[in-house]
């Protein structure tokens, strides 16, 4: 009984965390699925977003403005990776790692050379706070997070339907074709990376407010959590959600489910230190399954073709 009641009481928190990480995961989706690059900048960008928001709010800046500034700073992080990749010829993964590493120092600078900075909801008005997550009041962060998620998805749905957005999708789908149709694929890659990191920093800014502090390590491994959300969303809702907006919603749901499962596993008494290992193993498994499937499929295809006399086409 205590298992269920304590699980139940942890669910609102899990939902809030899931919604916040869902925005981060949508950013990961933009690079991983639409641009078809794995961008490791995000581990740094999440903390940059958090650090920026916390320091601005502590300096007396409005919390909503702080969110927007964090988004803008995220754009710049993406720009760095994008330029390293497209203008300096560095592979995308390495570009992301370089920016991420550089951001570690930048983040420490932003936080006044401290590894973490507190942001008490008692002292400053905040957009969202963990404090009220189980309260039935207007201060409860869940409705607001839901609205923010829906707005983010609506904006992205609009953007990727425009001419500019379509050219980014084409760049990810087939760069040779995109160039043949007059699309500047380098600029599109940069723009996609910027947008993705903007969202991740925005998510980091929400997360820092929610948990009441920013930390130099808050983004460590976040790419894997983002990927986990993307994959969980695809596995569970892939067949159902074909529209682009629904696909983004599936990513957000994926993040929420990830945090629900996490709570269950924790309530079952699992050691928190093992969490990253388990997450990494699950993500690796889900990334491997489509590959294994295609190999089995190809082998079946070969034997079937041989049986028919090898004239399959």
């Amino acid at each position: 009984m205590t298992f269920f009641s304590s699980l139940l009481s942890s669910l609102p928190g899990a939902a809030a965390q899931g919604l916040i990480w869902g925005i981060m995961a949508i950013g990961v989706y933009l690079t991983f699925r639409i641009l078809d690059v794995a961008d490791l900048t995000v581990d740094g960008t999440l903390a940059t977003g958090g650090a920026t928001a916390v320091m601005l709010i502590r300096a007396g800046v409005d919390h909503r403005l702080a969110l927007l500034v964090a988004f803008a700073v995220g754009l710049i992080c993406g720009l760095c990776t994008g330029l390293l990749h497209t203008r300096c010829g560095i592979p995308a993964i390495l570009s992301g790692i370089l920016t991420q590493l550089a951001l570690y120092s930048v983040n420490l600078r932003i936080m006044g050379n401290k590894a973490n900075q507190a942001l008490s909801v008692d002292k400053y008005p905040l957009t969202v706070s963990q404090r009220f997550v189980r309260e039935l009041s207007l201060k409860n962060p869940l409705p607001l997070l839901l609205i923010i998620t829906v707005c983010v998805i609506a904006l992205l749905y609009w953007f990727f339907g425009t001419e500019k957005g379509s050219s980014i999708r084409a760049t990810g789908a087939n760069p040779a074709m995109a160039r043949a149709q007059g699309i500047d694929t380098r600029a599109c890659n940069v723009l996609g990376l910027m947008l993705s990191n903007g969202l991740v920093a925005f998510s980091g800014a929400l997360l820092a407010q929610y948990q009441g502090s920013s930390d130099i390590n808050m983004g460590r491994g976040s790419i894997v959590i983002g990927l986990a959300a993307v994959i969980i969303g695809e596995v569970i809702f892939g067949k159902l959600f074909v529209n682009f907006a629904l696909k983004l919603l599936a990513v957000s749901f994926g993040a929420i489910i990830y945090y629900f499962v996490l709570q269950i596993v924790l309530q079952l008494g699992l050691n928190t230190n093992d969490l990253k290992l388990i997450t990494a193993a699950i993500v690796a498994l889900f990334l491997a399954v489509p590959y294994w499937k295609s190999r089995i499929h190809r082998q079946n295809h070969k034997t079937a073709g041989a049986a028919k006399g090898g004239t399959s086409c």
Partner: peptide, 16 residues
């Protein structure tokens, strides 16, 4: 729609 815009500036108008 992508091909129809070959050589044109691509902005924030609806893509199709």
């Amino acid at each position: 729609a992508l091909a129809a815009r070959r050589g044109a500036r691509r902005g924030l108008k609806w893509g199709l």
